[in-house]
């Protein structure tokens, strides 16, 4: 009885430690974002005031609203393109037997895991040649390197789980693959598409290396670049209150997204990881 109780206590202590470890930096960013000036030179463990000056300053001192819109636009277009291209490819890879299928899947895996800096100079040249340097379409193009291979891989995994009888009946009726794809598989794949799209959105929203390298002006930056390059008026002391306010602004929507779609995200992250 005592042993059981002790075990239970230990478990709860561990759970508490895990939760504190996971949320503390975010909590501390919120506390800091409400403090300014010399208050920042003392450490506050608990929220001691509610002041939105830093939040106003973030939007006043740089085109942060524009940066947020840039990030949303780039991520949305990247997700839409990846899902469309990934869906047609996943149907071919998941439902049709042909030689070269496994090498193609492995190539997708390799592209999604290789170091992005390996394509940096080649992409730089491509984007300059196409006249897309310092534009959002240029960033969309670059982001596809990150999202497309894993979208293909994930949708293929989901596509394989659907029962074989689905297209057999349609094939007997003389339907073409194109019709089967859009009429039969698209509705069935909606949940998988939501999961994959969410993960692709997070990837594109967080992307930094390409956005840093392929944009030049404040107006074209995405949120991660804007936050990374945020500096003070003197360039000597960093405006920590502003930086934390900006961090909170872009993190709150993501945290809400995660809490709402928790099950889907976990399912996506672990899709196929524990099979085969």
């Amino acid at each position: 009885m005592v042993r059981r109780l002790l075990g239970r206590l230990g478990l709860w202590l561990l759970v508490a430690a895990i939760v504190v470890f996971a949320v503390f930096p975010f909590y501390y960013a919120i506390v800091t974002s409400f403090r300014s000036g010399s208050e920042l030179f003392t450490v506050a463990y608990l929220p001691d005031r509610l002041d939105f000056d830093n939040y106003a300053a973030v939007f006043r001192n740089q085109p942060f609203g524009r940066n947020i819109l840039n990030s949303i636009a780039v991520a949305a277009v990247v997700v839409a393109l990846s899902l469309f291209l990934g869906f047609t490819a996943a149907y071919a890879l998941g439902r049709i037997r042909f030689r070269g299928r496994s090498p193609l899947l492995l190539a997708c895996l390799a592209v999604s895991m290789f170091p992005h800096v390996a394509v940096l100079s080649g992409l730089f040249e491509l984007i300059r040649t196409l006249g897309l340097y310092n534009t959002l379409p240029g960033l969309v193009l670059a982001n596809l390197v990150l999202t497309l291979p894993f979208t293909v891989w994930m949708l293929t995994t989901f596509m394989r789980e659907l029962p074989r009888e689905l297209e057999e009946a349609a094939l007997v009726d003389g339907a073409t693959p194109w019709v089967i794809l859009w009429r039969i598989f698209l509705p069935m794949m909606a949940p998988a598409a939501v999961t994959t799209g969410l993960l692709a959105f997070v990837v594109a929203w967080n992307e930094f290396l390409f956005a840093l390298t392929f944009t030049l002006s404040n107006e074209m930056r995405t949120v991660p670049v804007a936050i990374a390059l945020m500096s003070g008026a003197t360039g000597y002391e960093l405006p920590w209150g502003n930086i934390m306010a900006a961090s909170v602004v872009v993190t709150v929507p993501i945290v809400l997204l995660v809490l709402v779609f928790q099950r889907r995200i976990v399912a996506g992250l672990t899709a196929g990881a524990v099979k085969g």
């Binding site: 929203w205 930094f208 949120v223 991660p224 961090s247």
Partner: peptide, 11 residues
């Protein structure tokens, strides 16, 4: 525990 995973690396 998904929160740290979802926060952008830069942030």
């Amino acid at each position: 525990i998904l929160i740290p995973w979802a926060i952008p690396t830069v942030v």
